[in-house]
Amino acid sequence: MIAKTAVVGSGYMGGGIAQVLALAGRDVVLADVSAELASGNRERIIGEARAHAARGIFPPDAAERIADRVAAAPSIEDAVADVDFVEEAVPEVVEIKHQTLARISDACRPDALIGSNTSTISIGTLAEAVGGPERFLGVHFSNPAPFIPGVEVIPHAGTRPDAATRVVELLRECGKVGVPIADVTGFVLNRLQYALFGEAARLVEEGVATPEAIDLIARTTFGFRLPFFGPFAIADIAGLDVYEFCYQSLHGAYPDRFSAPGILTEHVERGEKGMKTGGGFLATPPERAGELAAYRDEAYAELTSLLQRLGEAPVDY
Rank of each mutant, 00 (worst) to 15 (best):
S75L: 07
V130Q: 08
L240K: 03
L306N: 01
R309V: 08
E272A: 11
F58G: 01
E95G: 09
A53M: 14
F147G: 03
E206G: 04
L203Q: 15
S116F: 08
T277D: 15
K176A: 09
K97H: 10
P133Q: 10
S39A: 15
D78V: 03
V70W: 03
A51M: 13
V20S: 01
G223M: 13
A22E: 14
V177A: 11
P110S: 11
A67P: 12
G158N: 10
R166I: 02
R44W: 13
E266N: 08
Y247L: 09
N41M: 12
K176E: 13
F232N: 00
D241K: 00
G11H: 09
A62E: 14
D111G: 01
E88H: 13
I181N: 10
A24Y: 01
T165I: 02
M275F: 12
G150P: 03
R257S: 13
P74D: 15
V168Y: 00
L264R: 04
D162Y: 02
Q308C: 11
S105N: 11
D162Q: 07
G262Q: 12
H156C: 13
A209T: 03
I17F: 09
E128G: 04
I237H: 06
P155C: 13
G132K: 01
V177T: 05
F187K: 07
M1Y: 03
P155K: 07
L203M: 15
R172H: 05
H52G: 07
V153Q: 10
E205C: 07
A54M: 12
A201P: 09
Y194T: 02
V188Q: 07
E312D: 09
